[in-house]
Amino acid sequence: MQEARLLSKTPFVVALYAAFFVLLFLVDMSGTGFAELLAPAIGSDGEGSVYARFVTSVTLSAIITLGIWLIGKLQFNAQRVTVWLIMAGLFMLFFTSFDLSFEFIQSKIWFMVSQGILTTLYISVVSISIASVLAIIGAVAKLSSNGFANGLASFYTSFFRGLPLLMQVYLIYLGLPQLGFVIDAVPAGILALSLCYGAYMTEIFRAGIESIPKGQWEAARSIGFKFGLTMRRIILPQAIPLIIPPTGNQFIAMLKDSSLVSVIGVWELMFLARTLGQKDFKHMEMLITAAMLYWILSMVLEYAQSHIERRYRKG
């Protein structure tokens, strides 16, 4: 709404145009593909000349300003879709400028999906499950009046929230064998992700549990429920619907953070992205493919997440 009204004001549109012009003039677009399109006007050897920079910026900023002005006339949803399409188009333009080999991508993509995505999902699902258990224990310990439990739990959360995840991955994979526990890459990765996310999720669970009114505790205790029974039968059943949506967010975040375990040689998506293209010097292809796969996965999960959230908000 605000933009739409702004865009109907001539001074604003002129200012916008001027801003784009200055920006593009400074950036110097005269060496780009766009300038080639304008060759009839500026001559093919005008690259870098003030005249060429002037002509390209004048035209390009006119096109951009016109585009924005037109989008401003659309309805909200049409605006959204248009902006998405334009941004996607720009991205495609950007990627094709790398001169990517699509045959190479095609030849590898099935392996990236079947091996990479599957491993990424597997690690994330197992880790978020373990992390949830750790988080319940951590939250209960933090809320209990037992100083021993509270000390352990707050040390745990402080430590694992205080260290970079990448460092935790290394410490577990390289450190545990020193203590005599030889650990494979996959379990080490899962352990690191579980411990780290468990620490973050402890706070989510604690907040969820604390948001249940004190009266629920008092009612349960006054009919003789002990702490554990109250937690299990009265508090958690009410807190879990509040905890599930933020846990979904953590899962989406973990999906991407699981890329860090590629450093210890787990064949998940990120590892494949780094290694598959190495032999043929097709790094960009694989990185961009993996990036797209991560993005698609996140979008699917975010969609699922918004459904779950709506369901639990209804109660």
Binding site: P213, G215, E218, A219, S222, I223, I234, Q238
Partner: peptide
């Protein structure tokens, strides 16, 4: 010992 609260506190 039964207890009844001002705010009911049903589950």
């Amino acid at each position: 010992v039964g207890m009844v609260f001002q705010s009911f506190n049903l589950f």
